[in-house]
C-alpha cells in the first residue's frame, strides 16, 4: 500500500485546508446503535415507565419505574437506574434499585439479584427482557436467591408476616432496625 500512502501524503501537503466531502463527526458506537434499536422497540406494560434524565441524546443512562399491579408489592413505585456500557450488548447493563425496598432479592444498597443481569446475560437479550425480569421480581419474590437475608427468611417461613412487613415498608416505616421511605 506504500504507493497509496505516498499519494495521500502528497495530497495532504498540497491541500492542508481542503474541505472534505464526507463529515468527520463522531459516529455512534455499535453499542449505542444497538441500544437505540432496543429502546425504539420497547414494549412495556402500562405499569412500567422509562425516563431519560440527561435528555434525548444520552440513551446510555436512564431510569425505569415499575408499579406492580399485583402481588405483595401492588401499587408501590420502584425506580431502577440503568447504566449501559459502550460494549453493550457484550456486557449486561448495570442496574440498581434507587428505591429502598424490603425485598429478598434486592439489598438495602439497591443491588439486584437477577440472573440475566449477571451470570446468565447473553447478547441476544435486550433492555425489554431486563425490564420484564425486574417486573417479575415483584410479582414473584424468590426466597432461594437471597440478597436481603432477613426478608428471604421471613418470606420462606412466614409469608403472612412477610406481607405485613412489605406493606409497612412501602407505606413508610420500620421493619426491624431499618427504615423504609414511603413509595406508595
Amino acid at each position: 500500500m506504500i504507493g497509496l500512502f505516498k499519494v495521500k501524503e502528497k495530497q495532504r501537503e498540497q491541500a492542508q485546508n481542503a474541505t472534505r466531502g464526507g463529515a468527520s463527526v463522531k459516529k455512534q458506537s455499535a453499542g449505542e446503535l444497538r441500544l437505540h434499536k432496543d429502546i425504539s422497540e420497547l414494549n412495556l406494560p402500562s405499569s412500567c415507565t422509562i425516563s431519560f434524565p440527561n435528555g434525548k441524546d444520552d440513551l446510555m443512562n436512564f431510569e425505569v419505574s415499575i408499579k406492580p399491579d399485583d402481588g405483595y408489592y401492588q401499587n408501590g413505585t420502584f425506580v431502577f437506574t440503568f447504566q449501559v456500557s459502550p460494549v453493550y450488548p457484550h456486557e449486561a447493563p448495570k442496574v440498581k434499585c434507587k428505591t429502598k425496598v424490603y425485598h429478598p432479592n434486592i439489598d438495602l444498597e439497591g443491588n439486584v439479584c437477577l440472573n440475566i443481569l449477571r451470570e446468565d446475560w447473553k447478547p441476544v437479550l435486550n433492555i425489554n427482557t431486563v425490564i420484564y425480569g425486574l417486573f417479575h421480581l415483584f410479582t414473584e419474590p424468590n426466597s432461594e436467591d437471597p440478597l436481603n437475608h432477613d426478608a428471604a427468611a421471613v418470606l420462606r417461613d412466614n409469608p403472612k408476616l412477610f406481607e405485613t412487613n412489605v406493606r409497612r415498608a412501602m407505606t413508610g416505616g420500620y421493619v426491624g432496625q431499618t427504615f423504609f421511605p414511603r413509595c406508595i
Binding site: N105, N111, C113, N115, R118, E119, W121, K122, P146, L147
Partner: peptide
C-alpha cells in the same frame, strides 16, 4: 463473555 458470579 466475562465470568460473573450471581450476587446471591
Amino acid at each position: 463473555p466475562q465470568v460473573k458470579f450471581p450476587l446471591c
